[in-house]
Design a protein around this nucleic acid. Structure first.
Lengths: 396, 396
DNA sequence: CCAACTTTCTCCACTGAGTGGACAAAGAAG
DNA sequence: CTTCTTTGTCCACTCAGTGGAGAAAGTTGG
C-alpha cells in the first residue's frame, strides 16, 4: 500500500484531523459543534480532506431526530509506529491514526550498545509487527530515547547513560530506514504526552510527570505543550541534591536523587540489605534469582518485610523532597508518578505525598492530586504516536 | 484631556502597536519590513490606527535613497501608571506609551497596613505625579503586589506576608479609582517583564528572575510569556528547603531558603553577629543606625569585614543550592538575580554561580549566564507598564 | 399513510480581508 | 535634466468565509 503523504493544508483541516483522532468517527454536523466554522465552510474542508485520503467516509450514523448524518473518520489504514527506548528494554507498538494500540512488543536491550545496534533491533521488531499483518508500512514514527534531545533536529545531546549516542542523527537515519516522517523526543516527555492523550492528565494544562525507572526524570507540560528547555534538558531532575553529603553519584556530586532512589539504586540497596542479613525475605529472593530488582522489593514489602518497606519509604521521602521543591516552583495542577517503580504502588505514593504535602505551601498543594500513571508501559509508545501525529496533523 | 479608550481591532493592529512601542517612531515602509503584510493592507491598518488616535503622524523621516517616508508613532500623550508594591516600600512611576519612565517616586510603606491604607498612599503618589504635569490622566495601570495573585481577576490569594489582602479586589477597586483599565500581578513577575522589555533578558524566551528582597521569589518566563501556575503561586521558591534541619521558618517548616537568606534574614544574622562581637565593623554600624540592613552588610564586606563576607557567601551558597535545582529542572537560557540585595554585588553573584555550576549538569549550565538585573528598582514599574500595555495593545 | 417538524447537507449570492501590479510623488545620483 | 530608488496610493482581482434558501432524509403523532 502506498503510504499517505498528504498533510492538512490549513489550520482548520489540522483541527478537524485532531478532533477525529481524539473523538473517533464523527459527522459533519457534530464536527461543526466543536469547531467555529459555518456549515458550508466545514463541508468544503471535509471534502478536501476526503480528497487527500487522510479521511474516509464511514457510513451513516443513527438519526438524532432528523436526517441521518454521513460519518467520516480518519483513514483506518493509517499506521503509526511508537518506539520507547529505555535503558534496559525497548517497547515498540503499532497504532492506527486514532492512536489505538494494534500491536505491542517489549524486549530487553542495553542502550549502551549504541545507536546502530539498538536500531537494528528496533527495526527488526517493527518488521515483525509488519509481518504479522498489522501494518503494510508506516505513515510516521515517534521515537523516545532515555536522555536529552535537541528536539527540532531529533538528535540526542550529551546523554549521560548513553555513550555513543551523542549527536547521532536519529531522526534522519530512522526516517530513511522507515521511509516515513520521524520525530524524536525524550522518553519522559513522551510519557507525559501519553498520559495527557489517554491517561490521567486528559484534562490538565500544566502538570508534571515524574518517571522513576532505571534513572529518574520529569516531563513538564505548560499550557498543554511539552516544555523542553533551552538545550532540551528540562526535567532532568535526577541530579538535584536530595540528601546533603549523601551517596556518591556517578555524576561526581554527592546526594543526587538518582543515587538515592531509582530502579538501579533500589536494586543496589536491596542487595546490600540482603547480603548484610537485614532481611530474610530479600535474601531468599536474591538466592533464588541471583539479582534483585524493584519487583522483588515490592513483593517483599507486600509480604510484610520491614526492611523492604523502609527502602521504599526512604526512597519516597527523597523523591518527595525533590518534588516538593518542584511543586513550590512550578505550581502544577497534577503530579503523575510513573515508570518501572510504580510496581511499588501505594507505599511509595504515600511516602511521596506525605513529604510533598508537608513541605510545600498550602496554596500550591491545596488541590494538587499526586497519582500513579494510568497507562503503565504503554504510556511511552502512545506518547510517541501522539508526537508524530501532532506533527503530521499540523499545517504543512 | 480625554483618555484613550480605543483598542486594536485585530491582530495586525495589535502587532503594529507593539512594534511602535518597542521600536519607537517608524515609517510605514519600515513597519512593512517587520510584519508580513502587503503595503496596501498595511497602509489601511495604519490609517485606521490614526483614526483611533492611538497613533499619530510624526513628520518626515530622512531619505533612504528615495522618497522620504511619513513617520508614525504612538500618541505621545498616552500615559501608563506603573506601581510596584513591596513589603516595605512602594514605587510609582508614569510612563509614555513607549514605556519610558517620565517620573518615578519611591516611598517607605508597610504592606501589613492592608490594602485600603496602601492604596490611599499609592493614589496620593499618583496624584502627585499628575499634579507635576507629567500626566493629565492615565490610560492604564499595572500593579505589582508581593504575593500570589489570581491573575485573570487581579485578586491576591492567600498572601503570607500580606494579611488582610486575601481576596481584596485590587483590579476592580483601582480601576474604579483611577478610571482606567488595570492589571495586577505578582511583583516578581513584573520584574521579569521589566528585564525582558528593557533589561538583560531582551533576547531570551525561557528564563528565570530570582528576586531577593525582604522575601525571595522567582519569575518564570516560558516561550516569552510569564508562567503563573495553576493557582498563581508559581515561582514561590522562598519555602523550598535549602538547609535540612536548618533554621525555623515562619511557615512552620525548617530550613526554608527564605529563613536562611533574604533581606530580613540577612539583617537578622548581621545584628546577631554584631551583638555577639563577631564583627567590629557591623557593631559600629549597628550602634550608629540602631538597625542593620543589607546595605550595611555590603558596606562592611567592601571594607574587608570577614564576618559580613561570610554571611554573603553563605547566603549565596543557600540560594545557589536552590537555583541549581531549578536550573536542572527548568533548563533556562538565563538566570537574572535582582531585588534589594543586589547591592551585595559581585560577592553574592560569585557564591551563587559557584554553587550552581558545581551542582547542575553541564548540559544545563554549559551556556547559562547568571547575571544581575540591569534595571534595579525600575524593573518593577517598567514591568507593570509593560503588563498593562500588553493588555491594551492586544485585540479587544 | 400522511402531515408536520427536525436534522443534515448542498448550493449560491454576498461580504470582507488581503494581494499585487500600475502609477504617481518625492528624493538621490550622475 | 535624466535615470534610478524609495515611498505611498489606487484599483481590480482572488479567496476565505458567511448565512440564507431549499432539498433530502429522517422522526413523531394523528
Amino acid at each position: 500500500m502506498r503510504r499517505m503523504t498528504a498533510r492538512p493544508a490549513n489550520a482548520h483541516q489540522a483541527r478537524l484531523l485532531q478532533l477525529l483522532r481524539d473523538g473517533g468517527p464523527n459527522s459533519r454536523a457534530q464536527l461543526g459543534d466543536q469547531v467555529d466554522l459555518s456549515r458550508s465552510k466545514l463541508a468544503v474542508e471535509v471534502d478536501r480532506l476526503l480528497e487527500t485520503g487522510l479521511v474516509v467516509a464511514d457510513g451513516l450514523a443513527a438519526s438524532r431526530g432528523g436526517r441521518r448524518s454521513h460519518n467520516v473518520r480518519l483513514n483506518p489504514e493509517l499506521r503509526f509506529l511508537g518506539v520507547d527506548i529505555g535503558a534496559t528494554s525497548v517497547d515498540v507498538a503499532v497504532t492506527n491514526a486514532e492512536l489505538e494500540i494494534l500491536g505491542h512488543i517489549n524486549q530487553p536491550l542495553d542502550v549502551r550498545d549504541g545507536p546502530v545496534a539498538v536500531f537494528e533491533q528496533v527495526l527488526a521488531m517493527a518488521a515483525k509487527l509488519r509481518a504479522s499483518g498489522l501494518a503494510e508500512g508506516f505513515d510516521g514514527a515517534g521515537i523516545g530515547v532515555p536522555g536529552p534531545v535537541r528536539f527540532p533536529e531529533g538528535v540526542p545531546v550529551a546523554p549521560p547513560i548513553m555513550p555513543g549516542w551523542d549527536g547521532f542523527p536519529v531522526r534522519e537515519a530512522l526516517s530513511q530506514e522507515l521511509g516515513c516522517p520521524v520525530m524524536v523526543d525524550n522518553d519522559v516527555n513522551l510519557m507525559a504526552l501519553g498520559e495527557q492523550h489517554a491517561g490521567v492528565a486528559r484534562t490538565q494544562h500544566d502538570f508534571l510527570v515524574v518517571k522513576i525507572g532505571t534513572g529518574i526524570g520529569c516531563g513538564i507540560v505548560v499550557g498543554g505543550d511539552v516544555y523542553r528547555g533551552t538545550t532540551g534538558s528540562a526535567g532532568d531532575i535526577g541530579h538535584i541534591q536530595a540528601v546533603p553529603d549523601g551517596r556518591q553519584c556517578a555524576c561526581g556530586n554527592r546526594g543526587c536523587l538518582e543515587a538515592h532512589f531509582s530502579g538501579a539504586a533500589l536494586a543496589r540497596d536491596a542487595t546490600e540489605a540482603a547480603e548484610q542479613g537485614a532481611s530474610a525475605e530479600l535474601a531468599n529472593r536474591l538466592e533464588a534469582n541471583g539479582v534483585l530488582n524493584a519487583a522483588d522489593v515490592a513483593a517483599a514489602a507486600a509480604a510484610g518485610d520491614a526492611t523492604a518497606l523502609d527502602l521504599i519509604r526512604e526512597g519516597g521521602r527523597s523523591t518527595g523532597q525533590v518534588i516538593a521543591g518542584l511543586v513550590s516552583f512550578f505550581n502544577p495542577g497534577l503530579v503523575v508518578i510513573g515508570g518501572g517503580v510504580t510496581g511499588l504502588g501505594h507505599n511509595l505514593l504515600a511516602a511521596i505525598r506525605t513529604q510533598v504535602y508537608r513541605q510545600s505551601l498550602p496554596l500550591a498543594t491545596g488541590n494538587l492530586p499526586i497519582v500513579l500513571g494510568e497507562l503503565g508501559p504503554t504510556a511511552g509508545v502512545i506518547g510517541a504516536a501522539r508526537l508524530i501525529s501532532d506533527h503530521l496533523f499540523s499545517p504543512a
